[in-house]
Design a protein around this nucleic acid. Structure first.
Lengths: 159, 159
DNA sequence: TATTAAATCGAATTAAATTCTGTTTTTGGC
DNA sequence: GCCAAAAACAGAATTTAATTCGATTTAATA
């Protein structure tokens, strides 16, 4: 078995993940109190979780409204090079306004989530960037009118 | 104009947001050094950004692979009560596996992003939860084969 | 069971968070 | 432009946390 990095997470790891997922700025000391452990022990675990790439990043979630990012859209794209190729993919991923790029099953090839100031800036971005990406055959854009829920939290099992 | 809470962010605020968006566990002290300010001043700003709901939460982004969350899907839903109603919406939002719920323009009413262990658990979740939500007329599910990029970072202007 | 590795603790040290007071800067009337 | 009030900021003092490291316990394995 090549490159099968077995990731084993015990009860304590899951507890830490549960705490940090919802409050990344929690102190080691607070976690230590919660888990009944020494702060140094918690620190070591957190570092290991980072090293193992279980924890990928600590993000501050910023209110898009505060930055006037009013436009959210999902774009389905067909591309000539198919989902195997990396070229189209990578170019899409490099656009800062593009938050997500997925290969999807079905008729379309990609699903792209994109956030901009308004519809004009979305159009502008599509014109300036998408047209420069070869192999794009067609796009189908779905505009979000209102977002009711938007989070990245995973469901973390008890054990 | 009712409830138009004008949010004014200056250069310093934007700088702080830029730092914390990518590393929520950065210390006030480090930010103070970076911005050439006193730590106490930074602290005050951060607290204000939290109060104004500019910073909504601090998240640890956890690798779905580490938790064996292999299935990611987008589901388009038509509902009888239309995008104005809250009932359907709220019920969807309360499902932990549901990461996003959007009202969308066009023929469909909702777009739902959902993450589960595998296709069986997705089916199970749809059977147990969706069928209990009234007014749902139809669903169209798009399965993600591979995720190339997935982040929530906003493009923060210079000034 | 003996051996090794991993995990944890706890004390010591270093560093950061937090509080508070005084000062400066900004803002908004007039 | 000037004044008053509010906001922003600095800096020192205090509290709290992070980090390090040697000793100890626990777990894994041959």
């Amino acid at each position: 078995m090549i490159n099968e990095t077995e990731i084993v997470l015990d009860k304590t790891d899951l507890h830490i993940l549960r705490l940090m997922q919802d409050n990344a700025r929690i102190s080691n000391a607070d976690m230590a109190r919660e888990l009944g452990m020494a702060p140094s022990g918690i620190l070591e675990r957190v570092k290991k979780l980072e090293q193992k790439n279980v924890i990928q990043q600590y993000n501050a979630r910023i209110n898009p409204v505060a930055l006037q990012q009013k436009m959210l859209a999902f774009i389905f794209m067909k591309a000539a090079d198919g989902p195997g190729s990396d070229e189209t993919t990578q170019k899409l991923a490099l656009i800062p306004e593009v938050q997500e790029v997925h290969h999807i099953a079905g008729d379309d090839c990609y699903l792209v989530k994109i956030r901009t100031y308004d519809s004009a800036s979305l159009m502008h971005l599509m014109r300036t960037h998408f047209t420069k990406i070869p192999h794009i055959l067609s796009t189908r854009t779905t505009i979000v009118l209102e977002t009711v829920k938007e989070q990245q939290q995973l469901v973390i099992p008890e054990k």
